[in-house]
Each structure stands twice: as C-alpha cells, then as structure tokens.
Amino acid sequence: MSGIPIRVELPAHLRTLARIAGHEVALDVPASPTIAAVLDVLEAAYPMLRGTIRDQATRERRAFLRFFACQQDISLDSPDAPLPAAIVSGAEPLIILGAVAGG
C-alpha cells in the first residue's frame, strides 16, 4: 500500500448500500490524511456513497451525519484539518455516524 491505512466506520444503511461486510472499511489514504481526503478515497472506492455523506457539489457534510474521532466530535472541524494521530496510526477508526433521530 502506498498511502496510510485508515479505518472508517459507516452507518449501517450506508454499509448495506455499499455492500460492505462488517462495521469498518479500510482505506488507503494519501499522506497527511484529512476528512476530505478520506471521503475522496471512500467515494472513489464506493461510488454509490457519493452524495450520501456530503453534498456532491458543495462537499458540505449532510446535516444529520457527524464525524467522530477518538471520542471527539470533529464534525465542525475543517474537512482539510489533519486527522488525530490515533486515526492515522490505525489505533482508532474514523466514525461516520447518523443522528439518532427521526421516525
């Protein structure tokens, strides 16, 4: 692998849509991983996820999804900010979480 292996945990509905077995997907992300870079790799590997996590044009996070890393909500961080060391090292997954709401 040429990049950095990043673990990503997806909501169940998106795992079903992308036919991903298990709770996590492992992505090979270029150096200096960011949320935007992780999503770029995720959407390239699973094109059916385009538009389900962030808007296809504005690239803004969808309102009812959050990004968690190392017990922190990093949803409001810049998508171009470096991810925490524990995500980069693979010790922790980047968690993409659907809001627990709705009927």
Binding site: P11, L14, L17, M48, G51, I53, R62, F64, G98, A99
Partner: peptide, 8 residues
C-alpha cells in the same frame, strides 16, 4: 431517499 443520506 432518506433525511440522513439523501437521494439514491
């Protein structure tokens, strides 16, 4: 479609 994930 879904309020969380948009249109498929």
């Amino acid at each position: 479609s879904s309020g969380w994930f948009g249109q498929i």
